[in-house]
């Protein structure tokens, strides 16, 4: 089969894989962005036990490879409790991967949030306090937007890393774009021994990250009307 004949087949297959990649990316963000905020509050808690538990969790999650975490989350319930909660299908693999990614990224995000919150000068909270605002009013009306502005650069970094990290889900055979590209090495739909589809997946990542970079740039510009 010539390259011209191969291309539409590969293209369609990669698109399906890419959809799964994007889905994992979006679900991870939707879970990890709020969870990270909760974890960051925990890590700043004045209640020592909570603070310690969170510190240990963040240490474990940041201190071990995401790939290992995913393998444990996917296989552990079945191997140890003989209760494969995820099931064997693509859906099960997706949710096992999503849960692993959410926990992992929430821990990284939590540290970025913490830096952002602690970076807002204490005088801002004090001003809110002497003006009679409540703690939650001070957080939502004063601190939050200043924190968001501060964390855009490190967040965009982390989120762009997430795009490429989704390929790690290949390890539990999630049918994301790398998996789809690799299939043409072993043989699929009459195409075998071809490595170019795997290389070609890089273009998808490049375009995806390019779009994100532009979006983050726009957000940064939108918040450039004030200085922190």
């Amino acid at each position: 089969m010539s390259l011209v004949e191969q291309f539409p087949i590969v293209f369609q297959s990669l698109n399906i894989g890419f959809l799964q990649t994007v889905k994992l990316f979006l679900v991870t963000l939707m879970g990890a962005l709020p969870l990270g905020l909760i974890i960051s509050f925990g890590s700043m808690s004045k209640f020592k036990p909570i603070k310690s538990i969170i510190k240990v969790l963040v240490w474990i999650v940041r201190g071990s490879p995401l790939m290992i975490q995913m393998l444990i989350i996917y296989y552990f319930p079945g191997l140890v409790f003989h209760n494969p909660i995820w099931g064997g299908g693509e859906d099960g693999r997706f949710w096992a991967a999503a849960v692993s990614f959410i926990i992992n990224y929430a821990c990284y995000f939590s540290e970025i949030y913490r830096g952002g919150i602690e970076g807002v000068p204490i005088g801002q909270q004090e001003a809110g306090y002497v003006l009679g605002m409540t703690k939650s009013e001070i957080f939502f009306k004063v601190t939050l937007l200043q924190m968001v502005k501060r964390i855009i650069p490190p967040m965009s970094n982390e989120i762009i890393t997430l795009v490429k990290d989704t390929s790690l889900a290949r390890i539990i055979a999630l049918q994301e774009i790398i998996w789809a590209g690799q299939a043409f090495l072993k043989g699929s739909q009459g195409i075998a021994g071809q490595i170019w589809p795997l290389f070609f997946t890089g273009v998808y990542y490049l375009v995806f990250c390019g779009v994100l970079t532009i979006l983050f740039g726009k957000l940064e510009k939108k918040l450039s009307y004030f200085k922190v």
Binding site: Q124, A127, K149, F226, V228
Partner: peptide, 11 residues
């Protein structure tokens, strides 16, 4: 209270 560093809300 008026602060030494003003502490206006920048946004």
């Amino acid at each position: 209270l008026v602060f030494q560093q003003f502490n206006l809300f920048p946004q």
